[in-house]
């Protein structure tokens, strides 16, 4: 049984349909990447899994249970955590409070604790009492990842963690993702930086205008196939 599965997932913003019948599957321990151009529906897909957009109960299954119509808070308690697009730290909370609030709804046993997160990202430990708004973009992204990780989720959803960051910072973040994967957490990475995504992923899915245009193992897909699925031309 897949750990997390979407079947015929659709999503709407008012009358506008953003997703058309998306079928994806995540096995325990696996990392998958979702790639696609701007507006392809990647964030919508993650929000649908995380419960920020609700639809038919059966369209998302987690550990066999339908969660497509479940609230975001409840889904988090069951073990799916989202690192949202644009980081979105709580501005009136300091760095450490941002991390701690991440386990408000769920304190599951597992590899991750405040101390382990500071070991993973030593840079933010020295800033633990700073206002989160004073951090650099890379540091903010580390806090956003730590905030999602501290509850020891079974699935970590990451929405474009490399967006707007310098290559050296992106490399550091992906190095951290390798540790997170090694610790046993399954992940879904949404990325525009295809090269990064492919390196850590077991499988990739490509979205195009709300539809799945390609899926497979990175080793089995050619550059041309990916290019075509990504841009449609």
């Amino acid at each position: 049984m897949a750990l997390l599965e979407t079947r015929g997932l659709t999503a709407f913003y008012g009358d506008f349909q953003a997703l058309y019948g998306i079928d994806t599957m995540l096995q325990a321990g696996e990392t998958i990447a979702i790639i696609g151009a701007n507006g392809a529906g990647k964030s919508t897909y993650l929000k649908s899994i995380a419960g920020l957009i609700r639809g038919a109960a059966d369209s998302v299954r987690f550990e066999g249970a339908p969660i497509g119509a479940t609230s975001a808070a409840e889904i988090m308690k069951r073990g799916i955590a989202l690192v949202p697009e644009g980081r979105r730290l709580f501005p009136s909370l300091c760095v450490e409070e941002n991390l701690l609030v991440g386990r408000y709804g769920r304190e599951a046993p597992g590899p991750w604790s405040l101390g382990r997160i500071y070991e993973l990202f030593p840079g933010i430990k020295t800033r633990r009492n700073s206002a989160s708004t004073t951090l650099s973009g890379g540091e903010q992204q580390m806090v956003a990842i730590g905030r999602a990780l501290i509850s020891n989720p079974r699935v970590l959803l990451c929405d474009e963690i490399s967006l707007g960051l310098a290559p050296i910072v992106v490399r550091a973040l992906y190095e951290a993702l390798r540790h997170i994967k090694a610790a046993g957490t399954s992940m879904i990475l949404v990325e525009q930086d295809i090269a990064q995504a492919i390196k850590v992923s077991d499988r990739i899915y490509c979205f195009q205008e709300g539809r799945l245009s390609l899926s497979g193992r990175p080793s089995e897909l050619s550059r041309e196939q990916i290019h075509l699925a990504y841009f449609g031309t």
């Binding site: 609230s71 709580f90 991440g102 709804g105 509850s151």
Partner: peptide
């Protein structure tokens, strides 16, 4: 109190923290 302030800051993200607003 952290949950109060987080909810006030950003309701959507607070829900992602398991905060039942």
């Amino acid at each position: 109190g952290r949950a109060f302030r987080a909810t006030s800051d950003d309701l959507e993200i607070a829900q992602l923290m398991g905060i039942d607003h």
